[in-house]
Design a protein around this nucleic acid. Structure first.
Lengths: 324, 324
DNA sequence: ACGTTTTCTGTAACCGGTTACACATGAGGG
DNA sequence: CCCTCATGTGTAACCGGTTACAGAAAACGT
């Protein structure tokens, strides 16, 4: 028994011959060591968990892919938890994860706070905050440069000649939404046309984008540019703008944020600030796994750069193929 | 110790008073039973796995939601496995699932066959096939009525006056793709205009839809209707049709299959055959959990009905708002 | 040749639960 | 009053691994 265990873990003296015999026997008997028993005996389970808030926003599956690929590469499994951004689901998952003895956690969440992660810290389970850090001191963080991205978006809209730019902001409880709004405000507050009513808050989804556009257009008859806080809202915004008979980009130009592939699908295609989605997931997974292996101990912040992708929704004056 | 275990499992004589004392003590000590130890001692882990082929096709997250919600309701956890439709990933997951002692599996796959599931059968782990059954004899199956849906789609295209209808078929290895193609062929083969070149095979994704349209339009100058084998392909098809300067629906009408919400986002919106996505996931989870509880033992096939959702892409002659 | 060190393997305790079994207690029946 | 049975609790074996420890055999140094 002990020798078999040593063969499997290859970390102690085992005679080559015996090792071969064990390996052959394992194959013949189709022996598969039980993760449960190993875990119980104090070994790592080689499983990390990834908690995402919304599986139907393609941004998060995109992150998940990055996490999964890296995990797979290092022989880790990923336990995917979809929290729907609901605090109670997140709490319940955190409990479950502890009971199941996962080795580490990558979490994207606004509802969770330090206190709730305390039990994990006690159990020595490392945590990496992805995309939405609630605390950059005590945890390793992977996120993109949201404020910069917002600035790039607004400056681009100004560069193409927009004279009055509105912002569809995500919920204030999201750091990402706040950062993007701050980036927007930083630029536009210098202009005389700016009024706070140019900011409309909405949920980070298609419906939110639609509703925000309706309000913005009703309250500000002369806006000619919209910076949406994420791509789903930009999609909804575009849909609604068309419905209201606005020409995009000639009447109103539109820029999103995230870089999900759906923005290439619309007519016109949507200009957006592209985050390195896959890479963010991969970086988070790599950081977590290195922590698990003890290769790094200190917490670190990884801020990835975003990129402006110019498409039809901000190319004024260009002749586009007609949709109808 | 034994008494505590009895309190937790509430299945044997325990004095009310003692029970209370145990419960209080558990709270005071923040005691959380270890799933690992329970699993090792032969108990269920209350975890089921869901294997999906493509997390970026919204259809599958939709199924996942259904599965998750029902699982949660019955206090089960879901281990989500994204196989990318790759046989080796699926195989590797099947091994892992066995080692981790999950209780049951819901699988959406073409690559897996009976032989590969044999170890699960030996380990007495029930399996439910979802969406893409490779065998309807030995496993419980949840799927929708694909052939009927295809027939409905084609008949709708005929009803609005299409004189030559093409089909973008998914890969033949998918049962769903085959069934839909058969439904299409069943109807159109009665017509004199039908030729096999009206069927173009493509991958079940946006890019596939684009490519197929390019070929179809090149080979058949007079098609005026397209039935796409799934919505992602329909999205790609629409995009490409517009690029080629075709008016949808007046030049070419378009119908998809699945009923993902993205079809409402385009201009024009896409007519589609709606599957009860969430319900399919929920039904699969319910079946699996009932099997786990021993409430059902026989295998059963659940075929859910689909529904035609008529939208702009098949409403000929209607004035639509302009996109540009 | 003999003591020391290295290599190798087996025994047994342990991880944290479940459960068969033994045993104690009190209630009910004749 | 004694026997039986239902109720309640503790003991110990077990699930399937890991690993500290002990001890055997082989290699090495002098």
């Amino acid at each position: 028994m002990a020798t078999v265990s040593r063969v499997i873990n290859k970390n102690e003296y085992v005679n080559k011959e015996t090792e071969q015999k064990v390996i052959v026997a394992m194959q013949e008997l189709h022996y598969e060591p039980s993760s449960l028993a190993r875990g119980l005996a104090g070994k790592k389970m080689n499983t990390i968990a990834l908690m995402i808030p919304d599986i139907s926003n393609p941004f998060f599956p995109g992150l998940a892919r990055g996490v999964e690929d890296v995990a797979q590469q290092y022989d880790f499994n990923v336990f995917l938890c979809n929290s729907d951004d609901l605090a109670y689901k997140e709490k319940s998952y955190l409990e479950i994860l502890r009971k199941k003895s996962i080795d580490g956690l990558i979490i994207i969440s606004n509802n969770v706070n330090e206190e709730e992660l305390e039990p994990l810290r006690m159990a020595n389970i490392p945590v990496v905050l992805l995309d939405r850090p609630f605390n950059e001191q005590n945890y390793s963080v992977v996120r993109s440069n949201n404020r910069n991205g917002a600035i790039m978006a607004v400056e681009h809209l100004l560069a193409i000649g927009c004279k009055k730019i509105a912002h569809i902001a995500g919920p204030e409880k999201f750091v990402t939404a706040r950062e993007r709004r701050l980036g927007y405000e930083g630029i536009v507050s210098q202009y005389s046309w700016y009024t706070p009513s140019l900011i409309e808050h909405a949920n980070f989804d298609i419906e939110g984008g639609k509703q925000a556009v309706t309000k913005l257009v009703a309250n500000n008859t002369d806006i000619d540019g919209i910076f949406a806080g994420n791509d789903l809202m930009a999609l909804g915004a575009l849909k609604q703008l068309i419905k209201l008979g606005k020409n995009v980009p000639d009447d109103i130009a539109l820029c999103g944020f995230d870089g999900i592939s759906l923005t290439e699908l619309t007519q016109p295609e949507i200009t957006t600030i592209q985050q390195p989605i896959y890479e963010m997931g991969a970086a988070a997974a790599l950081t977590l796994i290195k922590k698990l292996k003890g290769e790094i101990t200190e917490t670190k912040i990884q801020e990835l750069d975003v990129k402006l992708i110019i498409r039809g929704s901000t190319e004024k004056g260009k002749k586009l193929p007609l949709a109808t």
